[in-house]
Design a protein around this nucleic acid. Structure first.
Length: 260
DNA sequence: TCCCATGTTGCTAA
DNA sequence: GTTAGCAACATGGG
């Protein structure tokens, strides 16, 4: 169930493994993904991430766009042993190995599109995260700050785990209305978001249940989580009890004592 | 049996 | 127009 750090991890690993290699076959095993033609024979250029999306440019002006949604995983297998795991949704074959999509819940999507820059969210926590522009853009909105961070049309790549962690590090209550967040508080969010995401990338993501990297290894950032999944445990900063509420339908973890 | 799940979209209603 | 809430997608784990 990948967010920005997990997708970035996969893109970096894909870059090492499949860049400049020719796809000899794309076998779609789950027809819910649709049929993709004219992919075999194409050379993959450097894979890149947009938000939580994985892009495999094919060098002929088109790009394969993969979104893993909730339970999608990619697995690289360099040997010729049979792929025996359950829920394999496609297998992309190269002359030096195979790339498989594993997706129990079948929410992942795969599309072939023109390789034009996809619509970008105005804010990207690793690139364009100007506190003043953020503050300015939400003056009239009443939605909770956490809902805003999760809105992929507004902010690129943040999901439920990292939204909780960023708001904790910035000492902000996830329920606060965005229009009520001060410029100084936006500066705190901007200051905290990037190092958290970069640290998670450095750990190859957060493995709470399903997540594995391209080579089947779990990530390590779950050992660094401050609030996510820690209901009832003491807040690492102030010792107050980490609390779980439901916000916008999502489990939300925060410390009411130090997140105001 | 019920509730939960790292995501997104679309509907309804206030 | 905005926002909240919910169902849907489909499956597995506790």
């Amino acid at each position: 169930m990948p967010e920005l750090p997990e997708v970035e991890t996969l893109c970096r690993q894909l870059k090492e493994v499949v860049s400049r290699n020719v796809i000899s076959e794309l076998r779609i095993l789950d027809h819910k993904l649709g049929e993709l033609k004219n992919v075999a024979g194409c050379t993959i250029n450097a894979p890149y991430r947009t938000g939580k999306g994985i892009n495999l440019p094919l060098g002929n002006g088109t790009v394969l766009r993969l979104h893993l949604r909730m339970t999608g995983r990619l697995l690289w297998q360099a040997d010729q042993l049979p792929l025996e795991m359950a829920h394999i949704r496609f297998v992309m074959t190269f002359n030096h190995g195979r790339l498989a999509l594993i997706d129990p819940r079948r929410f992942a999507t795969l599309t072939l599109a023109d390789d034009t820059p996809p619509p970008q969210a105005p804010f990207d926590p690793l690139e364009k995260f100007s506190p003043r522009r953020l503050w300015d853009s939400v003056r009239t909105k009443r939605l909770p700050i956490k809902s805003f961070l999760l809105d992929q049309r507004a902010v690129s790549g943040i999901g439920n785990i990292y939204a909780c962690e960023i708001l904790h590090r910035a000492s902000l209550n996830p329920q606060r209305a965005v229009s009520d967040v001060s410029l100084v508080e936006w500066q705190r969010i901007a200051k905290e978001a990037k190092p958290i995401l970069l640290a998670a990338i450095g750990c190859r993501g957060t493995s709470i249940s399903d997540w594995r990297d391209l080579f089947g290894r779990p990530g390590e950032y779950q050992h660094h989580l401050q609030v996510y999944g820690r209901a009832g445990q003491p807040c690492p900063r102030c010792g107050g009890p980490v609390t779980r509420i439901k916000l916008a339908g999502r489990g939300t973890f925060f410390c009411p004592d130090c997140q105001k």
